[in-house]
Structures are given as C-alpha cells and as structure tokens.
Nucleic acid binder design. Structure first.
Ligand SMILES: [Mn+2]
Ligand SMILES: [Mn+2]
Ligand SMILES: [Zn+2]
Ligand SMILES: [Zn+2]
Lengths: 157, 157
DNA sequence: ATTTAAATGGAAATGATTTTCATTAACAAA
DNA sequence: TTTGTTAATGAAAATCATTTCCATTTAAAT
C-alpha cells in the first residue's frame, strides 16, 4: 500500500509540495473539510466550516486554495445551476469514487450515482477515443449530468 | 408537414403565444440572431448583433427573453467555464440537431459533435430509465461535455 | 380607437469571484 | 535555532455577469 495514500492527514502533502506549494494551516483545514464532507460544498460552505475552527482564515484563501486543488486534479468543481460553484474531492482522493450527477431543476437537489456506470464508462472510453482521433483533442475528463424533477418536486406539480 | 414548423420567420410564434407571451420586435430579433448563429453566443454577443439592427433594444431584454426561451425549451443554455452563459437553439428548432460538446480547457474553444451519438443516445436512454426508476426522478434532459486540449493548445505545451 | 396587462430600457442593485497590497508565515539554508 | 527569501494571507476594493426596480411603452384583445 503506497505510503501516505491511506489514513493520516497528510496523504496530499507530497503531491502539494512536489508542485512547489507550501502546506499551510488553512490548506490543511480546507482539505479536512472536503474529506469529511458528505455533500457538495460551495466556497462559502467550506469557509464557514473552516471558520468555526480557524476564524482567522478568510474567504479569499478558500477560493485561492480551491483553484489550486482543482488544477492539481485533487478536487472537482461543478456548476449545478444555482449560481455558485460546488466542490468535491476527486476520484483518487480518499472518500471519493467516480460518479455522475442527477440534478433537480426545481429544488436544485443533487444525487450522486454510480449505477449503470459500467456501461457508461465503457462507452465513454470508446467515445473519447473516437473524438480524440477525429478532432485531435487530448481528452482529459468528462462531465455528465442528468436533469429533471426529483421525487418531492414531482408530486408538488 | 406541420404549418409554421418549416421556413418562415414565425415558426415559434404559435408556441410563444400559446404560453401567453407576446410577440415583440425584440423577441423576433433575438430568435433571428439565434437562428442565423453558427457559434455559441453569449447574452452580450446576441445583444450586439440585435443592437446593430435595433439599437433601442436593451441588454435586459436579451436576458429576459433568453430566460423565457430556455424555459420553453426552444433554446439551450450552457456553461463552458469562461464565466458567461452561452446559448444555442435547441433540437427541434430549425438549424439545430442534438449534439454534445468538446471543450478546450486552455483556449475555451468548443466543438459540437454528433459522432458516436447513436451509441450514446441508446445508452443514455437506458441510463435515464434506470435512474428514473431508482431515484424517482422525472428526467427531462442531460448534459454531456468532454474536456481536454485542442489541436493547437496541445502543440503549444 | 380604447383598454389593460405584459414588455421594455436604463439605472441601480446584487452577489459570486477576483484583484490589490501591505503583512505574515512556511521552510530552506545557515 | 535563527535567518532570509518568497509564497501565502486577509481585508477591502474591484470586477462583471446577471437581476431587480420602476416609470414608460406597446401588443393585442375588445
Ligand atoms: Mn458528487
Ligand atoms: Mn453546441
Ligand atoms: Zn426537487
Ligand atoms: Zn485550445
């Protein structure tokens, strides 16, 4: 088992320092919050949780750190259509598996799903290969979201 | 062939009036611009094109009209990651076929593609059906985007 | 032509995110 | 451990796409 990839607070330190970034209290706190999160958090959600423990850390730092994490591929940034970005740990990070999203266009609720992913993944790879060749793109990732009305919102209408 | 669904400037009038909306010069102009567009336009792109012909029409009207068109399903709204929404006619409208997008994360170029769509569509339907049942969502549409480096940007790196 | 509510434009407001800049802190080197 | 270099930071201000307000105009039913 690769060192630093399992338990312990520092699984991402190496990746971070390797890119010339410093490990700071704020960054530790942000990763901690993301690791514990069970929902899709906005920058402000993260700010509030971090602020509860480290009141000195500002919202600006949250944004700056998230940008780095997204660029490193440790965190994924999503737009679920409510005007604020949402963040979650990427696959390969601890608490995370590759999944897609189901979004209620009415109440903005988001469901993670991994069902049917086998077929999807397979087709995705085929599609990516085909597209790469035809359009000369080096494809690195994809976004798949389904929209509709959730259980509750369906009833209300 | 259903009347008003082919040529002519008014193919959407019925749909529009049917929902209690009035047909105005501004709205005609906006639809006209979208129909002629060969790229993905931002609200301001549309504003400038409309403004060239009808200087009296304001940006606010562009936004308001686009919102209606999106709600009616006549226009699709996309986020390609550059901070401004992009719009294009939806499938079922004149110049438009269902397609997905390939986005360069470096220069933000966007490629429409319809290749491999047959397989995708088939899997999509199966996935939608499965998800609908399992999560009790009434799925209405989906978003599929691939990200990577385009031809040019690949070389530069 | 008259009537009435919907549509409009321009200015102001909003609000998420980014930028600026003076200060602090990480950490490599001594 | 102390020091020096430079990245990181927070607070406030700026940005900028989109929304809201409200007085005026206009589509279209009568
Ligand atoms: Mn998720
Ligand atoms: Mn397109
Ligand atoms: Zn809902
Ligand atoms: Zn490019």
């Amino acid at each position: 088992m690769p060192r630093g990839n399992g338990r312990g607070p520092a699984w991402w330190h190496g990746r971070f320092r390797g890119c010339g970034y410093r490990v700071t209290v704020g960054r530790e706190a942000i990763l901690e919050v993301l690791t514990k999160a069970d929902k899709h958090l906005s920058a402000e959600d993260i700010y509030m949780k971090v602020h509860a423990v480290y009141p000195a850390i500002g919202l600006t730092t949250i944004y700056r750190t998230l940008e780095i994490l997204v660029n490193l591929g440790l965190v994924l940034k999503f737009d679920f259509g409510d005007g604020r970005a949402r963040y979650e740990l990427a696959e390969g990070s601890k608490r995370s598996t590759h999944h897609h999203h189901l979004i209620c266009t009415n109440c903005k609720r988001v469901v993670d799903y991994t069902d049917f992913i086998d077929d999807e993944i397979e087709l995705l790879h085929r599609t990516e290969k085909g597209l790469s060749e035809k359009y000369n793109f080096a494809i690195t990732n994809h976004l798949i979201q389904f929209y509709g009305l959730c259980d509750r919102c369906k009833k209300k209408k």
